[in-house]
Design a protein around this nucleic acid. Sequence first.
DNA 1: TTGCAGTCAATATC
DNA 2: GATATTGACTGCAA
Length: 578
Amino acid sequence: GSVSDMLSRPKPWSKLTQKGREPFIRMQLWLNGELGQCVLPAQGQQQGQVLHSVTSLQDSLQQGCASSESTPKTSASCSPAPESPMSSSESVKSLTELVQQPCPTIETSKDGKSQESNEPPASESQSTTPLPLSGHSALSIQELVAMSPELDTYGITKRVKEVLTDNNLVWLTSLKSSRRARKCAPNSALGQRLFGETILGLTQGSVSDLLARPKPWHKLSLKGREPFVRMQLWLNDPNNVEKLMDMKRMEKKAYMKRRHSSVSDSQSCESSSAGIDYSQGASPQPQHQLKKPRVVLAPEEKEALKRAYQQKPYPSPKTIEELATQLNLKTSTVINWFHNYRSRIRRELFIEEIQAGSQSQAGSSDSPSARSSRAAHSSEGDSCDGVDAEGPPEGKPSGPEADEYSNATTKSQGGPAESAFEAGEEALQGARSSEKAEPFQAESLEDTDDEGRLRAPRQSSPPASQRPGEALETLPNSATEGDASTSAASTSVLTGESSYKSKESSEKISSVPSTSSTPAAGSQKANSLQSLFGFSEAASSRNTRDSSLRKKKAANLNNIIHRLEKAASREEAVEWEF
DNA sequence: TTGCAGTCAATATC
DNA sequence: GATATTGACTGCAA
């Protein structure tokens, strides 16, 4: 009966407890055994078997089974698994732990990417094969990702950055003047690029982004988790740095060779930016191939788009059209901009969550990511918690990044209504469970009809009677925004004269799209709120003003949650009373 | 169709 | 020259 139920109605991974995940891990292992993949070795005993899996994966990741020197382990790992050896719960348990544990027994050969000549370049194989791996190894990493326990993404990126910088593999800004760093980063772009392409199968930009703004584990899709599993495996490898150094040397050698052997300047030019792989006969994109020039938005255009976002994070097609016309941009550019902005604001929020968690719980043995994970779990949405609701922590660094996103994701003095509203919305999502998460920003608060009822979010597009350009005029901002933002919002996106601060403040309110990949179960909601408040409380205990504010928020939140739940429970809830 | 996650790759910044 | 930013794209899910 359990099997039938599990096969017909499997729960998502994120919803499963450790115990609940066990059968799926068993199934996965069983599948692996059936397929005879390079995952389960023929030899080994229990925990050792599991470690062999990692070993083989790691070897595969970094060397490929075919070409790796045959240490006993790698050769074993490449042999087909004759049977599924996982029979004890101990083995399963150890599997769930393996990614987090160091693998001291891992021995890998040091011939670096010797298989590269037989493999497509990482950059080219990106869409299908993320790494220069043989097919089964690529499959294995996916399997491992699927089986992996929750990882501390923040911690992993932190450690990766540490390892890379400690070994001068990346040339951070702070090391710019360091001769040693300079020495270790010669000629061609290495560091993030090398690490990304060889270890993660990602480009430099993606690596940079990933290291700077890791998402919490539970917010990642399987695909999104892959780089973190790879990073963890790489961290576990005692020879990781040496291998990377080797690759760096090899790349340099290949680069020099290419330079010397290149017949024409153009050939040299083509391949010089591509790294070692392009020298192996892979076909780089012809230079003459027409490429669309990259659109670079002018600062004033960005400002205008931000103002529009502030007013409507989810603009209607009509609004987008109008924006595009006013700004003389392509509609697709405007659409893309909104997508990207929403997405990046969300990510920024995760980071703030983590950082705020670190600050407020300094001294705790908990990892920041885990805390973040819990906090986000508790809120079950991309929305913010109480810390954000309190506005930027004092002393918080405010660079361009903060201007761009962080500020936008941090609540202003907006007070209880906004944050409580968002938290309530998250709770509502939990209540709605299967319902698609709707953009339900505070901004929508104002999108009410004459009776003050809140419209369903998707129906909050401007009235059809609006004149062109009118859509770009503001919706009244949150009542707590104050005069500044109200007046700011009453200007056109092109001529808006809002003070940047007030604009950012209201952005903060409207910038928290509340989509959730893992809606809270109803039973979790209480805990979610509790932890939400617990988290917020810690942050807000900094002063008594915050404390009283917090109480108001709590009261307001409860009230709102109650109303929203009632509204959500109505099947025909097109409009929610508020 | 819409929104999102993830990523690339051109460009900006340091 | 390395890293950070960001517009665009693909694939997926609802």
